[in-house]
Design a binder for these strands. Structure first.
Ligand code: FES
Ligand code: FES
Lengths: 151, 151
DNA sequence: TATAAAAAAGAGTAAAAGGTCTTTTATTAT
DNA sequence: ATAATAAAAGACCTTTTACTCTTTTTTATA
């Protein structure tokens, strides 16, 4: 529910890419980092990682940069998170005990399970495409913070 | 949803106290730490903090230790967490944007709000007393892990 | 085929979180 | 009074997370 920095940066960068980049219009690290206000080289590693895992595309050299193919848009938040930091959250006890288990439930187990279930469902339903579409249709928004949006 | 170590230790220690300590039978730091398997001096600071905030009671000197009064049992998980690490979680965006806001909702805002609301409700409803009672009635459990339970 | 552009890789630094060890203070019982 | 006990306080250490700076590799194009 609270992601690590790399995961947070990755999610926002990937949504940003889905909105503003394509094979014909790759975005350079420098621009992405400055548009989103993220530390450039740190984000660089994260993008590398995403590219290695084939969640986004990258091209070196002049006019290189990062972009996404249409197929990449199908990925869900859940699988993104899984790729980046794993899904241990979903079988961890809400009070920090051992593993969460049905036989010896902790005092918040029952309700917490339901909440986790709902959260899991939310994350699996939201694909990059669905989020991009919502933003394009101005049903949802993703501010660039204080940073000017170019284009 | 994922607490810091101090919060996690505090919650478990306080439930432990509610079950096994009283004004007549105070528990020493050493025993609590060893029973729960937490680092002694680190837990010490946390207990100090809880005592300073009057969430638990402490007594120095021979036969001193920590315990809870009946009134302390009324505290909810929510206020415990508030005291220890604040409630920023509940007005933070699930995608890590700025502040979460209704006017410019991010692509997961709507569903995420509901989940946060349910979680908030859960945490406010669970008091130390209610959790202690559930454990005493064996409706819920709180393993000591690999550590032997005395008494 | 040299040059420049851009990502990839690597090494190193800084800050925050988590944890240990030592000293001080308060309390109780002898 | 004094010795023993236990929490409180403080200084320090370790690990992890976050971030920066530099060098290398790949590739397009002049
Ligand atoms: S046992 Fe604690 S949430 Fe399941
Ligand atoms: S704006 Fe993202 S959760 Fe509310």
């Amino acid at each position: 529910m609270f992601f690590s920095k790399p995961t947070e940066y990755a999610i926002r960068a990937i949504i940003y890419l889905s909105l503003h980049a394509s094979e014909e219009k790759k975005l350079g690290l420098k621009q992405i980092a400055s548009d989103l206000g993220f530390p450039e080289h740190y984000l660089g590693k994260i993008m590398q990682d995403l590219a290695k895992r084939n969640l986004i595309q990258s091209a070196k050299g002049p006019h290189g940069g990062f972009y996404m193919e249409e197929k990449d848009m199908e990925i869900s938040l859940l699988s993104l998170i899984d790729a980046l930091e794993g899904l241990q959250f979903f079988n961890t006890c809400g009070l920090g005990l051992h593993e969460c288990n049905e036989e010896k439930p902790c005092p918040i187990h029952k309700e917490y399970q339901i909440i986790k279930g709902n959260y899991y469902r939310l994350l699996s339903q939201k694909t990059i495409r669905s989020m991009r579409d919502d933003i394009e249709n101005e049903i949802a928004f993703m501010d660039l913070g204080h940073h000017a949006k170019k284009e």
